[in-house]
Design a protein around this nucleic acid. Structure first.
Lengths: 213, 213, 213, 213
DNA sequence: GATGAATGAGGATTCATTCAT
DNA sequence: AATGAATGAATCCTCATTCAT
């Protein structure tokens, strides 16, 4: 019956702190970029600096945890949309969710290529995301909703690209990404276009020069 | 007879150092992001730390100088392409040049929204770039090469977005951006698509919340 | 039973460090002037550089803290002497204490007109000092111990002046200030002298050109 | 006939530059204190930084040269006043000149105890100043204008002390030193006072602990 | 002799991380 | 497990001084 007693156990406190920290860090990174200090994050979470390090041994670990959160959310969304009737619409919805998530997070662009993304867990999550999006994309392709030479990894990559396209506008026009999402989607649909000039990425090994794919 | 003397003047050395520095800084920022230290840049350029500051009073000034370099290159390219016969092809060529330039520069994404971009010169260069690309886009639109609801600022923004899309792949596949450039271009051409859901940006005032355009 | 535990608490250590730092900084500023580096001060206090900044956010804050220390000591001394029977002797004693305190501090002269003296706390302390010394002076004047045209602010200013007079001698003759204190006091007592040629300062707003008093 | 030709010789230029520099440095030190940079001084003098160093090998040398200038002026003044009829008035006039000179120079107080004052030339000038002021003081003492236990070195030291007394007021009340000069003079005249409690300084070896006088 | 570019030691300050309580 | 004080490496930047032209 652990967890049902009135007084919060030390364990429960820890869980709560972890959530507090994750939330505070997400907000801090989103607003200020990856250069926010651990001190600022601790302050936002209302805990002492030492507590941050008890939960996340290094700043990179914290960053990784946040990325993991985002990735898990996306994986979940993609998973659910696998059940949808209209495969094309499902893909579009997934991308909407994806770009919207990124749009709230100034850190994402900065974080690409940081050591944090070399955390095994993050890499695994990216792999899983690519897999499920691959499935989503297969269905859309098979249903004729998108052209034939688009892969799931393309879709995953486009999320960041679309976000970046709109990024400079976001402070003034927080919804501007919708324009570029649609534009990208139109590209994905143009069935009559000649084939894309460069082979699709097979694996997504971020910043890993050994993965000459 | 200026410039024909054999011995390098102090002035000539200074110009050389400035070039050395600009090159070293471009490379350093591209590889390591905006957080490379001025010391690292000095070392790469083979000069003392003080010399960096003699040429660029602050780190932001150096960053601005580099951005200016990039912007000027793009402005020049766009200017020249204004003379081309095939307006659609000209636009595509401009975008190719643009994305290629960005692809060499990891700092670009990070730099969006930094104070350096509030340097008047940088803002002016962005304005000029938008203007000339607007002209380029007008011609392409009028010739029917691209759909009617695309503006020059869209194009400028897409440069960064396309680059970002491919960015995670670049260490392993340095040409991967070509795929996403083509994909984006297909989007620009899909004449039968419904109109884009969000109005085009009118001005590009990076990170300026007052510019609700 | 607070304070009776054997092991020194972190808090107690901090207080000790703060005292160590204040002492080290006072000595360092006194010996070397305001240009001693924070590093030197840290070293003298036997702590790391970061610790100095944890206690005093900027060098000016540290300087202000030291000045505050000195001022508080003087205010306390003046306060106590307000109770003395012989008003003239009380004033003389206060000045003795004052000059003696300054004599240990080479930084005092340099610090006049530095931003640190614009710290509100320091200004307030100077105001308070002037007030209590004004009272001390009033009593001395009323008792006929000093001439009629001398104000408390004159006295406060004289402290620095007497110290400065002897300053060049202090390394070789640490007590030399006593000679000039006595000389100044004789000036304060010369009842038969004609009135001083320039009006007394009303307020002491150090380095504030707007305070044309 | 050197120096009478129309075209300025290199030598004449150098002399002019030296004067320019001395003037600029005096003004700069007076306004900003000893921490003005050599660059600022060069700029004020309208010459390049290298030129400053050709004339004054180090910053301390420049500081010494300026102090020398001031000391020479004071020596000259004292010399001339040796001829005056009223010995007491002559001393008072000398002190007026002296304090006035110091009042224009924020650097003076800061410079006491700097290595620059250990320049042999500066020490010699101080010795000469003390000598001639000693003579001036002797005459005043003999004429009964001042008390018997005051020496020339006392007078020289008082110059700095009187200046310092008024220093905090000078930005707002540039003439305030007159008040404290008069006050000091009254002290010097109080014939009925008991003897000063500490022996007079015999030599003035600024900041030289070996000169236990 | 004058110039001003280059040097590099040194300074204030920040911040991730460690550790005693 | 939480705290927050201490650490010290790293950063940007300044400035006296040197030196090639």
């Amino acid at each position: 019956m652990t967890g049902t007693t009135g007084a919060p156990s030390a364990r429960a406190d820890m869980v709560r702190n972890r959530h507090l920290l994750l939330a505070a860090a997400t907000a801090a990174f989103a607003e200020c970029g990856v250069d926010v200090s651990m001190g600022e994050i601790a302050q936002r979470a209302g805990v002492a600096k030492g507590t941050v390090f008890r939960h996340f041994a290094t700043k990179d670990d914290l960053l990784a945890a946040i990325m993991l959160q985002l990735l898990d959310r996306l994986i979940g969304a993609a998973d659910r949309l696998l059940e949808a009737d209209d495969a094309g619409e499902a893909l579009r919805e997934f991308m909407t969710t994806g770009v919207e998530s990124l749009a709230a997070d100034r850190a994402f662009c900065e974080v690409i290529g940081r050591p944090s993304l070399q955390h095994a867990e993050v890499r695994d999550a990216i792999d899983r995301l690519c897999e499920v999006v691959e499935a989503l994309t297969d269905r859309a392709r098979e249903s004729g909703a998108i052209r034939s030479d688009i892969t799931g990894t393309d879709i995953v990559l486009l999320l960041g690209g679309i976000h970046q396209t709109a990024a400079p506008l976001l402070p003034a026009q927080p919804q501007a990404w919708r324009r570029y999402l649609e534009l990208a989607f139109d590209g994905l649909c143009s069935a009559d276009a000649r084939e894309l000039p460069y082979p699709p990425p097979t694996v997504l090994r971020i910043n890993d020069p050994s993965a000459v794919g």
